[in-house]
Structure formats: C-alpha cells, structure tokens
Amino acid sequence: MKPEKINRIALVLLSAAALGLPLVVRSATYLHILVLLYFYAYLTTCWNLVGGFAGVLPLGHAAFVGIGAYTSTILSLQYGVSPWLGMIVGGLLAAGVGILIGLPTFKLRGAYFALATIAFSEGLRVMVENIDRLGPFTINGPRGLQIPPLDTGLTNFMFAGKEPYYYSILVMLAGVLFLTYRISRSKLGYALNAGGEEPEAAMALGIDVARTKLIAMALSSFLTALAGTFYAQFTLYIHPKSIISLDLSFEIAFIALIGGRGSIAGPVLGALLLRPVSDFSRIYFGDTLPGMHLIIFGVVLILVMNFQPRGLQEPLTRLYQKVVNRLFHWGALEAAR
C-alpha cells in the first residue's frame, strides 16, 4: 500500500469513529464532555489561523465567542431571527472587530497585539456586565441571557438530546479543519507563514504582511464567533463571566501551543490531550484540589515548550509516519511473496 493510501484509510477510519462514537457513548455526561472537547478543538483551530500561521499571539478570542453568542441570542430572543442567520451576523460583527484590533497593532511589536486583544476582551466583558439595555437590545448585564427551550428542531438550532449537538460541532470542526488544510496549501497560507517567521524577507518577496495578518484575523474572528452561537444554543444560557473570560482565551492558546501551533493536527491533538485533564480534574479534584488542572496545564506547557517547542504534534507525527512506513514496507514484502 502506498503511504498516501494509508493516510486516506486512516482519515476514513477516524471519521467513521467520530461519526459512530455517539452509538457507543450513551451517557449524557460523556457526550457533553465530548461536545466541549470538539468545541475547544474548533476554537483552537480558528485561533491557529492567526496564532499559528500568522505568528502573533491573540489572547482575547473569548471576546469573539461572546460576540457570536450574544448576537445570535439577542436576535433570536428579541427579534425572532433564526440562530443560523444570527450566527452569520455575529460572525461578520466579530470579523469587523478583529480587523479593528489588528489594524493598528499588526504594524507594531507582537506584544502590542497580544495586549490589545486582552484589553479588548476584558473591556468587552466589563461593558456587557454593566449594560442592561443597549438601544433596542436587552443585554441583561451580569445576569446574562437565558434561552427558553421552546421549539426544538434544526431551523431553531435547538435539540432535545445531545447527539444533534455532537454532530453539529463535529461538522463545524471538520469544516474548519478542511479550510485550514486548504489555506495552508494556498498562497495565503504561504504568505502567512512567511510573514510570521521573517516579516522583512516576506515583504521583500511581495507579501503585504500586515494585510495578510488582517485577513487571517478577520477569518479567525468570524469562525470563532460561529462557535459562540453554537455554545449559546448548546448550553441555553450565556453570561459575560463564563463566556467572555480570560480563562477561556488562555486555555485556547495553551491547547494550541501544547498541541503544536501552526500545524493542522496540533489544535485537535492539544484538545484531545488537555480537555480530559481539565474535565476529570474538575470532576475528581474540584472540591479537594481546586485549580489542579491549571497547575497541570502550566507545568505541561513549560515542559513542552522546553523539549518540544513545536508542540506534541511533532513527535507524534513522526511516530505516525514511522508506522505508516512500516505498513508500507510490510505491504510491499507481502506483495512480493
């Protein structure tokens, strides 16, 4: 068997496993955990478009999750707009904001962009916490918004069981992974990587580095906001402290760096490795050892950055390639016999 063929088979098997998982996992708790895992993998993949490819450090992506969640929720609760439409509106709003943040900061040292994203995200949270009504929109300050579980169904993006949510986020994740794959092999992907690594050389080679970063930022913010709508529809309750939180922003960045930023598999891998740590340590140590998972995150992060600066994706990819090569040679030998 050719390595490409093995890769394709592995991908098919993986997809089949992901599709079939809800048939095996019947517990609502575990499905919930899986949905959140994909949710984080999705967010991190979006983050990776700027944080990985463009080589800057966004630390306020929770703001875009919040923009997406609030936009679609306000529109559907107060104006009867379908969450699907609200999702797009939220995404466009987030893209605009992303461009506004990037516009002045992409020309400066990376630290400014990182700080601007944090400040915007924290500023947004404080605003939302302080505003009950904004013109015609009810925001409800720190109490947040509750979505009454009325009519379930695809048009309302609301379901009785967890399975439909599982498949929704799985499709979203697959979509954004495919998009990332296409971008990484396109002119934009090359330009982003080049501009992130050596901006002066990239500029000399015809790349308007600040502009490509803006494109990536707009795309990333747009896609991130879509997940905000998903989160609102999944939990049916959003409030500023939980959704526009620095913890969420940082967790995304941690997952990306530990998994391997700038690679396609890295974010998914990071989520697969880290989400269970935080879920289970919350379940088992939540009362006795609060914050245990954050200590683990911190330690793992420092160790990984020390010994695998490109993230765990690198040694695992190498291992996978070795296995594939073995299979290939073994297959060739069999055929020869």
């Binding site: 990376g110 990182a114 200590i295 911190g298």
Partner: peptide, 17 residues
C-alpha cells in the same frame, strides 16, 4: 511568543499553587 506564553504558565502555576 513561546516565552510570553510560558510566563502565562508560570502565572497559572503560582496562583493555583
């Protein structure tokens, strides 16, 4: 960037310890 993010790791460790 990795250095910046590592200081964040230090933050998490110190606060939660």
């Amino acid at each position: 960037i990795t250095v910046i993010i590592v200081t964040t790791g230090v933050w998490y460790i110190l606060d939660n310890l």
